[in-house]
Amino acid sequence: MFNGRHFDRLVILLCVRWYLAYNLSLRDLEEIMAERGIHVDHSTLHRRVVHFAPLLLERFNRRKRPVTGKWPVDETHVRVRSRWMYLYRAVESVGRG
């Protein structure tokens, strides 16, 4: 997957991750990498994002846990300004059998 690339695979993954996760522009990433001593052009970063983002998404989706629609709710009431009010909160049931 990373054979024949000019930059180390960790640099590539870091740039792709930051671009996808933090709403950074490619020029912002170019500047951030330059501050760290890695000189890379924004067009190179764009090619890496276009190439690696679908591959990473496929790998992440394979390892992702299924999401269930069940959330148990605890019903409690608390006193707010001399009045009893209901407080609903969702309780995650991970690890409960």
Rank of each mutant, 00 (worst) to 15 (best):
57 L>R: 00
60 F>L: 05
10 L>F: 15
81 R>G: 03
70 K>E: 08
63 R>N: 01
96 R>S: 04
75 E>Y: 13
30 E>N: 08
71 W>T: 10
12 I>M: 05
63 R>T: 00
69 G>V: 13
60 F>C: 10
40 V>T: 07
35 E>P: 06
47 R>K: 13
54 P>W: 12
47 R>P: 00
30 E>K: 01
77 H>M: 12
92 E>T: 06
52 F>K: 00
5 R>Y: 13
96 R>M: 14
89 R>W: 15
60 F>S: 03
70 K>C: 13
58 E>M: 09
6 H>P: 08
57 L>W: 01
23 N>S: 02
15 C>T: 04
61 N>I: 04
63 R>L: 03
88 Y>P: 13
95 G>E: 11
95 G>N: 06
13 L>W: 11
15 C>S: 07
51 H>R: 10
26 L>A: 03
1 M>P: 02
43 S>V: 08
53 A>F: 06
66 P>Q: 11
48 R>P: 00
29 L>A: 07
87 L>K: 09
78 V>A: 07
91 V>P: 00
7 F>D: 05
15 C>Q: 04
78 V>S: 03
35 E>C: 14
90 A>G: 10
24 L>M: 15
86 Y>T: 11
28 D>A: 14
11 V>Q: 12
74 D>R: 15
10 L>Y: 13
64 K>V: 03
15 C>A: 12
79 R>E: 08
17 R>E: 09
42 H>S: 07
97 G>N: 02
31 E>C: 11
62 R>T: 15
69 G>P: 07
84 W>Q: 09
43 S>Q: 08
48 R>A: 08
78 V>H: 02
73 V>P: 01
84 W>K: 04
1 M>D: 07
65 R>S: 01
1 M>A: 10
48 R>N: 13
97 G>R: 03
3 N>K: 10
77 H>A: 06
71 W>E: 10
2 F>E: 12
76 T>W: 13
81 R>V: 03
25 S>L: 06
92 E>Q: 07
65 R>L: 01
77 H>L: 03
38 I>E: 10
85 M>V: 06
10 L>W: 14
95 G>H: 06
73 V>N: 09
89 R>V: 15
54 P>L: 13
44 T>F: 01
20 L>Y: 09
67 V>Y: 07
25 S>T: 13
62 R>N: 07
94 V>S: 08
37 G>H: 14
29 L>K: 02
9 R>L: 14
20 L>V: 08
72 P>Q: 05
30 E>T: 03
54 P>K: 11
79 R>D: 05
93 S>V: 06
59 R>M: 10
28 D>T: 15
34 A>G: 12
91 V>N: 04
19 Y>G: 05
51 H>Y: 10
29 L>M: 04
24 L>D: 10
32 I>L: 15
4 G>N: 09
33 M>Q: 10
55 L>M: 03
56 L>P: 00
2 F>A: 13
37 G>K: 11
10 L>G: 06
15 C>V: 10
6 H>S: 14
80 V>L: 12
94 V>E: 09
62 R>M: 14
86 Y>R: 02
11 V>G: 07
32 I>H: 05
31 E>I: 12
85 M>C: 11
68 T>Q: 01
59 R>I: 02
68 T>L: 00
81 R>C: 04
54 P>D: 06
31 E>A: 12
16 V>K: 02
